[in-house]
Amino acid sequence: MSLSASTSQPLDIVIIGAGIGGLSAGIALQQRGHRVRLFDRVPDLTPAGAAISVWPNGVNVLEKLGLGAAIKAASGEMQSMSYSTHDGALLTRFSLQPLYDAVAQRACPIARTALQQILLDGCGRDNVTLGVSCEGVEPSGDGMRVKFSDGQQIQADLVVAADGTHSRLRNYVVGHDVTRDYCGYVNWNGRVDATDDLAPATEWTQFVGDHKRVSLMPMGNGQFYFFFDVPLPAGTPNDRTHYRDELRGHFSGWAAPVQHLIERLDTAIVSRVEIHDMVPTSSFVKGRVVLLGDAAHPMAPDLGQGGCQAMEDAWVLARCLDAGDVDAALARYNTARAERTAQIMLRARARSQVTHGGVPAETQAWYAELAHETGERVIAGLVKTATGGGELLSDQG
């Protein structure tokens, strides 16, 4: 894409947060001629979690950003999907090719470090300042004044708050304190060498039972991304030295691949996360500050859409700003993204409850349904998610 794609005057934009959403926005906005500076409070960009499943809608955005080839080269090849009972009896296995054919794109499960490096290279390392946090913003002229922890103050035409699920700017935009809600389960995740006794090399393999789930997904570089989900009360002890014993206890009697996985995982690089989401908010915009990614819509990971929706946000924001009238552009962005992401947040929470025993009878019914699943219902849901982004994502822009 050439810079001439934009018909607006270039803006001076400050992005708070250099994760997936912030970096994607940095690339999209630079492509359209804007000056972009990113700031992140962390001293080093070390992403949380081992990997991310970038579904076709996210891959489509990365293609628009000029990163499609790099992402596909670094990602895993995921050709099929399966569910088995906790003790290893196969419930269903089906190809993902119908999904890929329907949306003309494949999924790209990829290490978060690899994705972040590709995005950082695309955005430009010189545009990113680390170890500096945003302490506040205030209206100033036609834009905003941004105050940082190192004492500097920067004038910007627009501030993009892409500072994650613990966003410091969310309350400013929404206008009141926003609390995150515990989804009822804990997730352990990491990476492990891919071997045949764990799962087929090109399959997303899942074991379910007792409201728990174990997943193995090819993530590239000869490795699987794995996670364990266990319903637990909030605030249960988190001691890395006990992770293996915890998982042994939670998954005692489960299938041999699950036992092999527990014994082989490297507890030094395993992440343990209590899963939270948030009630959708109706506004992502206040003046010249706009929320993006998890700052706007933290969601349960059960649809695999957190990162993908951040990428969609980034592209749509850049497209909206083409019109030239910043306030009108932000209003259009808000209309396009608040409803779309609210629907996915609610669907992800509903799926989380079914998977993890929110209503035990519904979870048991889902297990029974899986025994008769041909793949058509699952594929239909994935197609719906991938194609529901609206005109700002469907055209080439």
Rank of each mutant, 00 (worst) to 15 (best):
N189V: 06
T179P: 00
P218L: 04
M217C: 11
V178P: 02
V174W: 05
A199H: 10
V214R: 05
G175R: 13
L198N: 01
Q223G: 09
H211M: 07
L169C: 04
H176G: 03
V159W: 09
V174E: 05
S167P: 11
R191Q: 11
T195A: 06
Q152P: 02
Q152W: 11
S167E: 03
M217K: 02
A199G: 13
N171T: 08
F224E: 04
V192A: 05
N187L: 15
D177K: 14
I154K: 06
F207M: 10
A156S: 12
V174L: 03
Q206P: 00
D163C: 02
R170L: 00
A199M: 09
C183I: 15
T202V: 13
A194W: 00
Y182C: 01
D163V: 05
G175W: 11
G220C: 04
M217A: 07
V178K: 03
G222Q: 11
S215W: 13
V159L: 12
V208P: 00
L198E: 02
Q223Y: 04
V208H: 12
N171H: 15
D193T: 15
Q155T: 14
V192G: 00
H166M: 08
D177E: 14
I154Q: 08
H211C: 07
N187R: 14
G190D: 11
H166K: 12
D157A: 05
A199T: 07
Q155S: 14
V186K: 04
D197A: 08
F207P: 01
V214T: 07
R180D: 12
H211S: 09
W188G: 03
R170Y: 06
V214A: 10
R170D: 00
G175V: 10
N189R: 13
D193S: 15
V160I: 13
A194C: 04
A156I: 08
N189A: 02
V214W: 00
V208E: 10
N187H: 14
R191A: 11
H166P: 05
T202C: 13
R213L: 08
R170E: 01
G190W: 09
L158H: 07
N221Y: 05
Y182D: 01
Q152A: 12
A161E: 02
G222H: 04
G184I: 00
L198Q: 03
V178W: 03
V160G: 06
G222N: 07
T205R: 01
D193A: 15
N171Q: 10
T179S: 10
T205Y: 03
T165V: 14
L198W: 06
N187A: 14
T179W: 07
G222Y: 03
D157G: 08
V174R: 11
G175M: 10
K212E: 04
V159K: 05
N171Y: 07
Q155V: 15
L158C: 11
D196P: 09
L216E: 01
T179R: 13
G209M: 08
Y185M: 07
C183N: 12
P200H: 00
W188M: 05
M219Y: 11
M217T: 14
V160T: 04
F207I: 09
M219S: 14
W188R: 06
W188S: 02
K212N: 07
G222V: 08
V173D: 06
A162P: 00
A161L: 07
D181F: 06
L198K: 02
V186G: 03
G220S: 03
A194R: 02
Q153A: 11
D196T: 12
Y185A: 10
